[in-house]
Amino acid sequence: MDILTQTKTGFTSIIKSFFRKKRYRIGIYGPPNAGKTTLANRITLDWTGENIGAVSEIPHETRRAHRQSDICITDSRGHTVIIDIVDTPGVTTKIDYKEFLEYGITKDEAILRAREATEGVAEAMHWLREDIDGVIYMMDSTQDPFMQVNIMMIGIIESRKLPVVIVANKIDLPDAVPQRIRGAFPQHPVIPVSSIEGKNVEDLYDNMVRTFR
């Protein structure tokens, strides 16, 4: 890089820093049971020492969007970004209370859970439209990435021109194939992590600072 290019890059970054937003609102989206709340808890625990929400194996445990404000993330080069993390309910095209019955909850509880989950998805979609500055899109790397909801959501995020980091979660499981996700969405950064074990989260933080800053 010659001296002229270096000067130009330095000057541009100084000018940009004047106009840069103070804080970004980052939504964690993805299908149910991809590990959104586990990742949100990992990020908030790492940087603020607090948890954001409860985790469960029953789908749609998160039925309302939860927000944790003023999380200052620093990457390995010392750059920082201040974000609000919004943990959203799992996005799906069909919610049926019968799916929840096998987890040992009563029919009334299952119907209520399905209704709240539907309201939660509607709310999360509305947030995506107006209140979100960037997206962390979670996928389960043991599952097929070509699920209808993934294709649809990535399309929506692209059409709204929101910066996105795709997280290939659950790489600690033996049947995880994060390369499938990378192959399916080569146009976006795909970071393989294990939210539950904290594996490779530093790489995710580096990418978050690079993408959302």
């Binding site: 049926d96 019968k98 979609m125």
Partner: peptide, 9 residues
């Protein structure tokens, strides 16, 4: 009641 189809778009 309890079964919904959502049009994400």
């Amino acid at each position: 009641p309890g079964s919904y189809e959502l049009n994400i778009h």
